[in-house]
């Protein structure tokens, strides 16, 4: 290399499509894996490629996918939120309590969302303004919010949910697709496009890349962090609303252990636990992939106890593939 200047007209312009780069993105790898798994599953089990089964898988993973969107945003910004599953349950119980007290559907929706705003603000304030470690903080709030669910519900399931509310999730207003699936897909697409293109949402990647550099670029990092946790909790609250609407009741152990399943899925989908890396589509594909793995195990009558083994292996294979792809690159 010479230090003198040479004309490089191509710099900055995209020359054709670079297949190798596209094929080696995590999203593409997971997508191909999903296709391969789908083909294999179809051959193994006659029940896999049936409308009923696909519908089950897609509906079953919707809640986790909505949670994954918010969690991905927090992971991109360099944080982590272990309390998401507890927030799902909290919002579910708040919604049920509103109905128990004779509240209307809009009031229940509002209360559910507000529960997300409030707990997100608690997480965000502790992490962004008090400077506590996000892992420990949300580990704490995870148990607190879960306890709150048991305290509020008295440990009982609540099922006085009006039919009009259930319709929100189970209705088929668009193209005969269940509403919760439509909502999930919409949320995934909207957030993906925002994170990639919107000036404000892009700041989360800056924050996750280097907090110091973000400060120097004039970003109010504290407020951004706080808002990231609020968005994450609101999405978890939306997921809680979906759970109640879908099942027609609210259980205190809703979404138990979901935080780790979602974290596993979004890392499979290309998020980095160290921040700065990941896309919403990737995270959604990760959730879909793990849902399909579990589905094929169930269809083949493999005990559900093996699902953990499968997800764990997928996770380790995913980070292993990363290590192989990135071998030789500067770190």
């Amino acid at each position: 290399m010479t230090a003198t200047q040479v004309e490089r007209p191509s710099l900055g312009r995209r020359e054709g499509i670079e297949w190798k780069r596209i094929l080696l993105t995590r999203e593409m790898i997971v997508f191909v894996m999903i296709l391969l798994l789908g083909i294999a599953s179809t051959m193994i089990s006659p029940y896999f490629l049936t409308a009923a089964n696909i519908k089950n898988v897609v509906i079953g993973m919707s809640v986790e996918m909505v949670v994954a969107i918010g969690l991905t945003l927090v992971l991109i910004s360099g944080g982590i939120d272990l309390s998401v599953a507890s927030v799902v349950a909290l919002s579910a119980v708040v919604v049920a309590l509103v109905f128990d007290a004779g509240g209307s559907v809009p009031l229940a929706l509002f209360a559910g969302i507000m529960s997300g705003v409030i707990v997100g603000a608690v997480n965000g304030a502790l992490i962004a303004y008090v400077n506590l470690n996000p892992l420990i903080t949300t580990l704490g709030t995870m148990t607190i919010f879960r306890s709150a669910v048991y305290i509020l519900s008295g440990g009982y399931a609540m099922s006085s949910i009006p039919a009009s509310f259930k319709e929100i999730a189970n209705g088929t207003w668009v193209l005969g697709l269940p509403n919760l699936v439509v909502l999930t897909v919409l949320l995934v697409l909207v957030f993906h496009v925002l994170v990639a293109n919107n000036v404000w949402f892009r700041k989360f990647s800056f924050l996750g890349g280097s907090e110091m550099a973000a400060v120097r670029a004039g970003i109010n990092t504290r407020r951004l962090k706080m808002l990231g946790y609020i968005i994450c909790s609101v999405l978890a609250a939306v997921a809680g609303i979906i759970v109640v609407a879908r099942l027609g009741s609210s259980f205190p152990n809703t979404a138990q252990g979901m935080e780790l399943r979602v974290i596993t899925a979004v890392i499979v989908g290309g998020c980095s636990i160290y921040g700065g890396k990941g896309t919403i589509i990737g995270a959604a594909l990760g959730v879909l992939f793990l849902a399909l793995v579990n589905n094929i195990l169930v269809l083949n009558s493999v005990s559900v106890y093996w699902q953990g083994v499968a997800s764990g292996c997928v996770l380790i294979l995913a980070i292993l593939s990363d290590a192989i792809i990135n071998r030789g690159k500067r770190s």
Partner: peptide, 22 residues
């Protein structure tokens, strides 16, 4: 000395950080 760069982002994002062209 630390250059205040975003290692996870490309050149354009780095150069325009905080002053993006809309």
């Amino acid at each position: 000395q630390d250059l205040a760069l975003f290692d996870n982002l490309d050149v354009a994002a780095n150069v325009y950080a905080g002053k993006e062209i809309v």
